[in-house]
């Protein structure tokens, strides 16, 4: 086994081009488990933790460009007001030790449908910047994951950054599991309200082969908010509308039965979480008059 340790982004991309089979390593909270248990024995590892560019975030075109190597602890500490949905989800990841090392780029790299960073990215329309020595491309997060643990990264590509709009309204995330900490989501749901654009975004985790959007639930809620003038009045949402939103979110999932939960439970819990996150987010919106 060989471990390459580039110290700049250019070196990292060159290393990936030269060793297309090499496995990138960020915080190691997924990859080291595989190495320790001998589930994976790559010939070459590219350690990205010395590439300073990956560990930075900045404002670009009115949004946030989050370097793939920024860990969850920093997302929580530094981006809670600009990317609140992602920060809430980051607080639910593993434990302090895991959040100190684990990265959003690593969550994308693993492409598990249960990755907790992914639903908030979907709900906010994140775009993923992929880079190779030959150039850069940007793909919507929904097109990035293509199947459980599979994504569109080409052999010579690395994840450079995640582009997200700065929040213009409330964002929420809810996750269900057997414990409050150290839990892989049985199901999860993320919600983004964008009042200036009059739009609603959703993301479903752990209830399909890839993170999903509940498009019909989004359109339904946008319709209710428009028709009843609620964006402007900030009036109360009817219980019926909240329940219908939950039901449509639940119907958008494509869950399976597995060791963590049954498909029926996932569907049910998604309806509950969608309704709850909407109630929280709408209360927050009403409170900010």
């Amino acid at each position: 086994m060989e471990v390459l340790q580039p110290t700049s982004w250019g070196e990292a991309l060159a290393a990936k081009e030269e060793h297309p089979g090499a496995v990138p390593l960020a915080g190691g909270t997924d990859l080291l488990v595989e190495l320790n248990f001998d589930r994976r024995r790559p010939e070459t590892i590219i350690d990205l933790t010395r590439v300073a560019e990956l560990n930075e975030w900045s404002h670009v075109n009115g949004g946030v460009r989050l370097g793939a190597g920024v860990d969850y602890t920093r997302v929580i500490a530094e981006l809670a007001s600009e990317l609140p949905g992602l920060a809430i989800a980051s607080r639910t990841v593993g434990s302090p030790q895991i959040r100190n090392r684990g990265t959003v780029g690593g969550n994308l790299g693993t492409s598990s449908p249960a990755g907790d960073a992914l639903p908030p990215l979907v709900a906010s329309g994140a775009r993923i910047e992929l880079a190779a020595t030959s150039g850069t491309r940007v793909v919507p997060v929904e097109e990035f994951c293509i199947a459980p643990k599979r994504n569109v990264l080409a052999p010579d590509e690395l994840i450079a950054a995640i582009h997200m709009p700065v929040a213009t309204g409330p964002q929420q995330f809810s996750k269900i599991g057997t414990r409050n900490a150290m839990v892989i989501a049985v199901a999860s749901f993320a919600l983004t309200l964008d009042p200036p654009a009059r739009s609603v975004g959703t993301g479903i985790g752990s209830a399909g082969p890839v993170p999903l959007r509940a498009t019909e639930a989004e359109r339904f809620l946008e319709g209710v908010l428009d028709e009843e003038g609620l964006w402007d009045s900030r009036g109360q949402l009817s219980e019926g509308a909240v329940a219908r939103f939950g039901q449509l979110a639940s119907e958008a999932s494509r869950p399976i039965d597995d060791v963590r939960g049954s498909a029926a439970y996932r569907r049910h819990s998604l309806g509950v979480m969608a309704g709850r996150t909407l109630a929280w987010a709408w209360d927050e919106y009403r409170g900010t008059l």
Partner: peptide, 13 residues
């Protein structure tokens, strides 16, 4: 200075 699980840090890191 950061709390980590040493089992998840590759020695080279």
């Amino acid at each position: 200075g950061v709390l980590v699980c040493s089992c998840l840090v590759l020695a080279a890191q």
